[in-house]
């Protein structure tokens, strides 16, 4: 069983969650080129290793949050709520939930 450390609820069974997908900042609709939109819509890094992504605790607190997970071992290295990104060292700017470093809205993010 994979345990997902929800920032609100602590470690819970992965079956309670929905995997939203790889984190990617949405391009600015006013200035994005068609290529940027296509990349945002379809192209994925799909790495075999650490990745930053968005998860949704659908059968729990129903919050969207960001997670850093290893896609080969499924080890969760850390999870955090959208508002917490600024407090993290190392600048995890490539997150989808919430506000990215440039102030734009993330992909699947709902404020919590």
């Amino acid at each position: 069983m994979i345990l997902v450390p929800c920032p609100h609820c602590g470690p819970r069974n992965v079956a309670e969650f929905r995997h939203v997908g790889e984190a990617a900042a949405r391009p600015d609709p006013a200035s994005a080129t068609p290529e940027q939109w296509r990349g945002y819509l379809y192209l994925r890094r799909n790495p075999a290793g650490p990745t930053t992504e968005t998860w949704y605790h659908r059968a729990g607190c129903r919050a969207y949050f960001a997670a850093e997970r290893h896609t080969v071992t499924n080890e969760f290295r850390r999870t955090w709520l959208p508002g917490e990104v600024a407090a993290l060292a190392g600048g995890a700017t490539e997150m989808g939930a919430g506000v990215d470093a440039s102030g734009g809205q993330g992909s699947g993010g709902k404020s919590t």
Binding site: G21, E22, G39, Y42, L43, R44, R45, N46, P47, A48, T71
Partner: peptide
């Protein structure tokens, strides 16, 4: 399974998740 990783070696990005 490794389609995106092999394509990335050639600099080609794919609309694929594993």
């Amino acid at each position: 399974g490794w389609g995106t990783l092999v394509a990335a070696m050639a600099g080609v990005r794919l609309p694929i998740v594993t």
